[in-house]
Design a protein around this nucleic acid. Sequence first.
DNA 1: TGCGGCAAACTGGTATGGAAGTATACATGT
DNA 2: ACATGTATACTTCCATACCAGTTTGCCGCA
Lengths: 229, 229
Amino acid sequence: MNISKLEFDTEARPTIAKRIAESLRDAIVSLELKPGDTISESDIAARFGVSRQPVREAFIQLAEQGLLRIRPQRSTEVVRISIRDVLNARFVREALEVAVVRKAAAESADLPDDVFEELYRSQTAASDANDYRAFHAKDDAFHRLIAKLSGNEFVWKLIDAQKVQMDRVRFLSLKLGMPGTIREHRDIGEAILSGNPDLAEAHMRKHLRKIDTQIHQIRDLNREYFQEE
Amino acid sequence: MNISKLEFDTEARPTIAKRIAESLRDAIVSLELKPGDTISESDIAARFGVSRQPVREAFIQLAEQGLLRIRPQRSTEVVRISIRDVLNARFVREALEVAVVRKAAAESADLPDDVFEELYRSQTAASDANDYRAFHAKDDAFHRLIAKLSGNEFVWKLIDAQKVQMDRVRFLSLKLGMPGTIREHRDIGEAILSGNPDLAEAHMRKHLRKIDTQIHQIRDLNREYFQEE
DNA sequence: TGCGGCAAACTGGTATGGAAGTATACATGT
DNA sequence: ACATGTATACTTCCATACCAGTTTGCCGCA
């Protein structure tokens, strides 16, 4: 009798470090912590009521995501938005999303016609209510669903990691183009359901490349958040 | 676990934690640390002659790369090779490499005809000398060069991160197909120089997908290193 | 011989102290 | 007034100590 197989998932309990990292990430992406701000381990530790060690581990994690810049013995600062980095992230994201959307379109034969409807509706509702947070959450959910439909949901983890670089720009965009986004999502969804990978790819590229033009406007309106380059 | 020596190069590398991480990564990829081995912070710390803290940070980093599995209060183990994970990594890598190789081919107009020659030669030399380490280093250099030629060298960082999952398989392959690899590299290089993105893409996909068939042979010869799935 | 229970020896997570490096305010000397 | 040295107050990085689970193995007992 093999009892050892019955053990339940002991994995998922989040550590303090992980929670701190997540909380800081939200603060940075929502510009609560502003680009250029300097923070310190002890400062954040005191604010959360924990010791410096888990905060330090959170810092390291965020530095690897490109959100913090740790300068030993000097300071740790929230990195300013870099147009170059944003475009690089967009390039990677586009490569990944094109790969999954093509696959989703090629294998869409036995999908119900209304797989996307629920998301369209809730995103439209969020737009009508001017609820940006909900809107962006549904935006992410749409892209994630495509990855799942392609049988490569794990790719979303990477897309999400890249997205971090773009999220602050998206936050600054806010109302810019909520309805437009929904229209593009519909185009992509229809191309998938019609089993047309080339068309799905084209719509996806166009959708993702909107940021290329947006980012310069955003920069001009928020110079202080951007790196000079 | 049973290792003779573990040490980091005393020069370069900013923090102890990073040096430990790099050293451990090499040990894992070269199967010095075997899949399934359990290691502990204090154990490794003693071997390197440092405290647990930097080792712990190295563990966290390697866990994020999918090489270690940290089970709080229980143990930390070197994860076994998972065919699924390897194929997932291959999928991502393919998406990225296709994107850069197409771009490189599309913009190859003003490249000197011999950009790749040096690498071809040194890789052939490494193959003739049965020098696997050098061969693999040149293999990586070739792919990295393509990313650079496309103007997106930063993508290499991601490709490299994905590659970690495949490197242990590559290590087990060893002699399998060194000459074949060179032939494929030449095909890719020629397609780039002839400015043919579609052909370059096709050769790249074929090149990267070799692992799909190889991995099952490797698994059958090294069951103990693989996860049952 | 086999089983149950308990204590000691692990594990990773967190807290805290100290070392080394850097920036800065402020004296001091010319 | 203006350099220059210095004390001081930061910073991150590493070491050490402690905590709370988990595993292991021994011991007593049936």
